[in-house]
């Protein structure tokens, strides 16, 4: 499954939002209603699903679904190159 789809599935599950309503431009806090504790859970879910490490200060900068997809794709690419 592509990163895009996996990210949307995780966001839908953690934030309890229908998957089909999630758009890449959606902001986690303002549009999807993520509280700080949801964001902590989201970061952990991304780390577990993609087997990557997200430093908290980098995770905090990711504001939208699209940014999360691109951040994870870059992380996976970096991992492959190593």
């Amino acid at each position: 499954m592509p990163v895009r789809e996996k990210v949307k599935k995780i966001v839908a599950k953690v934030l309890r939002v229908p998957e089909e309503k999630i758009r890449e431009e959606n902001r986690f806090v303002q549009d999807l209603g993520a509280e700080s504790i949801d964001s902590v859970e989201l970061m952990a879910a991304f780390e577990a699903e993609f087997n990557i490490e997200i430093p908290p200060e980098e995770g905090e900068r990711v504001q939208t679904v699209g940014e999360a997809i691109r951040y994870i794709e870059n992380k996976l690419k970096e991992k492959e190159e190593k």
Binding site: S36, I37, V40, M43, A44, P55, P56, E57, E60
Partner: peptide
């Protein structure tokens, strides 16, 4: 650590 919903998380880290 952040403990929420029965699990341990690193949360936003030391700085936050």
């Amino acid at each position: 650590v952040w403990y929420l919903k029965g699990k341990f998380y690193k949360g936003y880290g030391f700085g936050k």
